[in-house]
Design a binder for these strands. Structure first.
Lengths: 145, 145
DNA sequence: TTAAATGAAGACAAAAGACTCTTAAAACGT
DNA sequence: ACGTTTTAAGAGTCTTTTGTCTTCATTTAA
């Protein structure tokens, strides 16, 4: 069950990586991050560019360059990132892919899928990167296998 | 948020279509079904062949041929179909795609994702095609837009 | 027996997603 | 000023999924 695209997953992992470091200043090198997260450097670069263009990250070229969070991890929730990579209508889908599915014309599984989506969206909306970053920092959870 | 593959969706819709008809005998023509469900005939044929090979459907060639349920819709649950098209490990995934994710080495979102998956799997496991077919028959829900 | 209707099977094509590579541009240190 | 390090950008490749098309096999009904 793959819910998120690889781009979104890698973007999330990169952001969590940075949030878990909570360095007060300086930039995180993409090369190092790619190595730590086991993501191809070029692929990660492309994904981070999206986040930079959207204003989530600041980037800096040249030696000691890299990317840095431009938004406080306390104010960044999973839903923001998911919306950014998957689109604003990410939670506005029918499990059976029917275009007209809704309260008026529900598909056979509309009712329970509605609740599943709502629960997931709520969780994504209330989970900050700071919180998950803290869990990584103290070793409760991890970003790599 | 596309959770199921198009093949699985179309397979489910076809089975629900047949379950909602609950004809006691005879075969449902694939051509008619494809037209009613707005699926290309050839594509639907290919998908139904999988169900036939797995023993879910019986098929019959020639005039008045088609496919028929080989399993009582009361005994067929959504989980069966999903497992068939998406694999047995459909609910055994990490939201961040980490290979080693589990209770021992949880990813940052493991805990709540675990519960989401469990709820979904339970729902899929307890929902029979007969139940959904009945809803379609009495007009509460529908298979097309 | 023959023609028409139907599913079976597989080759083929198109599209999307995932990933790689090359070149350019910027910034630092010397 | 120069060379090194680093991100930026986009073209290009590979794989998987999705969908189409053609040919064959089977069955019915006239």
């Amino acid at each position: 069950m793959q819910v998120l695209s690889q781009a979104c997953i890698n973007g999330l992992r990169a952001l969590l990586y940075m949030a878990s470091q909570n360095r007060q200043s300086g930039y995180t090198g993409i090369r190092d991050m790619a190595k730590d997260l086991n993501i191809s450097f070029h692929f990660l670069t492309k994904i981070l560019q999206v986040l930079t263009q959207k204003g989530i990250l600041l980037s800096y070229r040249g030696p000691n360059g890299g990317v840095a969070l431009n938004v406080s991890p306390e104010k960044l929730v999973l839903l923001d990132i998911v919306h950014l990579f998957e689109g604003q209508d990410f939670f506005d889908t029918c499990l059976l892919g029917l275009p007209g599915c809704g309260e008026k014309k529900p598909c056979p599984v509309h009712e329970f899928w509605k609740h599943t989506k709502a629960a997931l969206e709520c969780e994504f909306e209330t989970t900050t990167l700071a919180k998950l970053g803290e869990q990584i920092r103290n070793g409760t959870t991890r970003l790599t296998d």
